[in-house]
Computed example of a mutant assay.
Amino acid sequence: MSSQLSTRHTINQDRQDKARGSRLATLTASLTPGLALCAIATAVAMAVNSVYSTASPLLIAIVLGAILANVVSLPQTVKPGLQFSAKKLLRVGVALLGFQLMLSDILALGWGVIVVVVAIVCLGITGTMFAGKLLGLTWTQRLLIACGFSICGAAAVAAVDGVVDADEEELLTAVALVVIFGTLMIPVIPLLARLLGMSDNDSGMWAGGAIHEVAQVVAAGGAIGGSALAVAVVVKLARVLMLAPVMTVLSVRQRRLIGDDANIKRPPLVPLFVIGFIACVVLRSTGAMPSAVLADAKFVQTALLTAAMFALGAGVHVATIKKVGPRPFVLATISTAWVATIALIGVTLAG
C-alpha cells in the first residue's frame, strides 16, 4: 500500500513539475521579445554614455523609447517584456541604487543640510499636492508628480506606482514631465547660480536639492565645475534616501484605506524593493563591500534602470500627452519652481 502511495506521489510530483516547466516556458516566450528590445536599447544608451560621459544612459533610453513608440507601431509581442522591465526590473534597479549611498557621506553634510534635504522632500510633496488639488488633478497624478519632482525623478514615480497602482496614463505623463523639466533645469541652475554669485559648493548643494534625476544633477554639477559635482551628488543621494520612509508611509496609508476588503490586494507594510534598498545602503555603509563588487553592482543597477527607462519611454505617446491637457504641465512648472525655491532658501540658511 505504501509503495502505491509513493508511486502516486511521484507521478503527481512529475505532473506538477511538468506543469510548472510549461508555465515557465510560456512566460519566458512571452517576455523574450520585449526584453530583447530593452536589451538592445540599453546597449545603445550605455554605448553612447561610454563615448559621451555627460550623456546619461537613463535619459537616452527614455528618449529612445519615446521616439520609437511615436515613429513606429510596436507589435503586441513586445508589450509583456516592456511591462516586466518597467515594473520588475525597475524595482530591482531602485534597490541596487542603495549601493551608491554611504550614510557617512550624508552625515558629513552636517545636520543643517540634512534638515534642508528633509524639508525639500516633505515640503516639496506637500506643496505640489496642494497645488495639484487646486488644479483639479487626481490624487494619484498629484502624488506621482510630487514624489518624482521632490525625491528622485522617474525611479520615484515608478516606486509610487508600485504602492498605489496608478493609472498607466498618469504614470507615463509623470515620467515624461520628469524628463522634460529635469532636463531644462540642467542649464538653468548653473546659470542662475552664477547670476546670484553663489560659490561652487553652494551651487552644487542647490543643484542636488533642486533637480529631479540623479543623472540630471550630475550633468548640472559638472557644468558648474569645481567642487560642485561631488556635493551635488551627495545632496541628491540624501534625497534618494528619503524614498524609503516616503514609500513606507504611502504603503501604510494604502493598507488603512483598503482595510479588511478581501477583494483588494493590500500592499506590503514595507515594499520589498524598499527593504532591498535599505539593505544595500547598510551593506555599502559598512565598508566591507569590495570595490570590484560595487563596480559590478553599479553597472547592473545602471543597466536595469536604463532598460526600465526605455520601457517607460516606449509608453509615452504624444497623443497621450496631448489628451491629459495642460494642467499636469502647470503643476510640473509650479513643483519645479517650488522645490528649487525651498532648496535655495535652505542652502542660503545652511551656509
Results as ranks from 00 to 15, higher is better:
residue 349 L to C: 05
residue 125 I to A: 07
residue 324 V to M: 02
residue 122 C to Q: 02
residue 339 V to K: 03
residue 106 I to P: 01
residue 125 I to M: 14
residue 325 G to W: 14
residue 147 C to S: 14
residue 81 G to S: 12
residue 81 G to P: 01
residue 123 L to S: 06
residue 58 L to K: 00
residue 38 C to E: 04
residue 105 D to E: 15
residue 286 T to G: 09
residue 180 I to Q: 02
residue 108 A to K: 13
residue 63 V to T: 11
residue 165 D to L: 04
residue 25 A to T: 15
residue 87 K to Q: 12
residue 132 G to E: 04
residue 62 I to G: 02
residue 45 A to D: 02
residue 216 Q to M: 09
residue 138 T to C: 05
residue 296 D to V: 13
residue 123 L to N: 04
residue 254 Q to H: 13
residue 24 L to Q: 09
residue 215 A to R: 01
residue 28 T to M: 07
residue 29 A to W: 13
residue 318 V to D: 01
residue 218 V to Q: 07
residue 261 D to L: 06
residue 42 T to S: 14
residue 298 K to P: 02
residue 212 H to R: 07
residue 247 M to G: 06
residue 68 L to R: 04
residue 58 L to W: 12
residue 40 I to N: 09
residue 154 A to K: 05
residue 171 L to Y: 12
residue 175 V to D: 00
residue 334 I to Y: 09
residue 92 V to Y: 12
residue 166 A to Y: 06
residue 182 G to C: 06
residue 44 V to Q: 05
residue 308 A to T: 10
residue 273 F to A: 01
residue 131 A to V: 12
residue 256 R to Y: 15
residue 236 K to Y: 03
residue 231 V to N: 01
residue 126 T to R: 14
residue 215 A to G: 15
residue 297 A to S: 12
residue 117 V to D: 02
residue 150 S to Q: 06
residue 90 L to E: 01
residue 283 L to G: 14
residue 346 G to K: 04
residue 8 R to M: 13
residue 289 M to T: 10
residue 135 L to C: 05
residue 64 L to G: 02
residue 131 A to D: 13
residue 270 V to D: 06
